[in-house]
Structure formats: C-alpha cells, structure tokens
Amino acid sequence: MEYEFHWNIVFQKMPQLLNGAFVTLHVSVLSMLIGIAIAVLLAIAKMSDYKLFSLPATLWVEIARNTPALFQIYMAYFGLGAFGIHLSPYVAVLSALVFVNAGYLTETFRGGFMSIPRTQYSASRSLGMNSVQVYRYIILPQMFRRIYHPMTNQFVWSILMSSLGILVGMDELSGETQRLQSLSFRTLEFFMVAAVMYFLITKLVLFSASLVSQKLFKGDL
C-alpha cells in the first residue's frame, strides 16, 4: 500500500506548531533555571558533614537519577493527587523536569567543585585573598568552565524530555502535534515536522552554546 503525503494541512497549522515549540523552549529554560538554583543548594548540602543535610540531598539525587522521567511526570500529575495537589499539565511537567535537572546538576556541580584541588584555596589565601575573593576569582571561574558542557547537555536533555508532556496533555510541541494530528489524521506528516523542529531546536541550542563558550572561555587551553 502506498501512503500519500498531504503537507498542506501541516503548513496551515504551522503557527500552532511554532507556538508549541515556544512552550517547549519555555518549559525547558524554566526547568533549567530553577533546577540550577536547587542544584547549587543540594550540592552544598550533599558536601556537608551533617547527615541532616547530606542525607536528603543524596536521596533526591539518587531518586532523580535512578527512575524514569516518565515516572516522575506521572508522579507529579497523578501521584500528587493523593495529597489533594492537582497540578496542571504544564506545572506537572515543569516540576518533574526541575526534579530531574536538579538531581543531575547536583552531581555535575559537586564533581566540578571537587575537581579543583584544595591546595589552590590555601595558596590563594596565603597570597592574601579573603574567602570570598578566592571563590570569586579562583574557584568559581574554573568550576564554571568544567560544568558548562554538562549543563548544556542537561538543557538539551530537558528539551527532549519535555516531549513527555504529550502523555499528560500538555500544549508543548509534542502535545500540540498530537492534538493537531487527531483533528486531521495526518499523523505521519505532523510528527515528521515535529521531529524536524526538535532537531532544529536542539542544534540551535548547541550552536549558541558553543558560540557563548568561545566568547567566555577565550584564550583557554
């Protein structure tokens, strides 16, 4: 059997698809920003000597890293209902992505921090810098270089995983595609366009990230 492609309907719906792509970017950027903020706190907590802080942080990290993202979205969307918390699809997907991002980024931050020898700290202190200066001028800049690339990857991962919003009826790119194809039955065409759009978004993000890194880390070895 031969399948006949009808692209017209897809191009007519382009504004909606682009809107969906915007929501995809929106939710992933937001999930990264909140995820980074939480991850900084979790990384500090995880390195703490007090079990009271390190244990919950470890628990968060391990749960986020060892369960499927789809499970976390279901947990946010259906599971929290048991506590009388009913999240909208957008908030459910956002909180699941924040949860995972924070978990993964904690390890990234911790690894980046640990990779800088403690001797640099003592050396800078002995040169007369105070603690804030050491972090501001010595430790954080080096750390940022090391975590930049993993952070970019995490961002790309967030974009790809936000496609799970399709399963809870969110209006990001996949969900919007699903809704539009169900109205026209041009499933193949719509999802092919969505695939191309995801590919382009990912490439665009990676390209701009490498441009930024060239600017930021100019003169590095």
Partner: peptide, 15 residues
C-alpha cells in the same frame, strides 16, 4: 539522538 524517543516511536509505528 536529537529527536525525542517518544516522537521516534510514534513516527515508526505510524509509518
């Protein structure tokens, strides 16, 4: 690697 798995699955089975 750059197209979400869920889209790949839907595309393949629909195709």
């Amino acid at each position: 690697r750059s197209v979400p798995l869920i889209i790949q699955l839907i595309l393949f089975s629909t195709y």
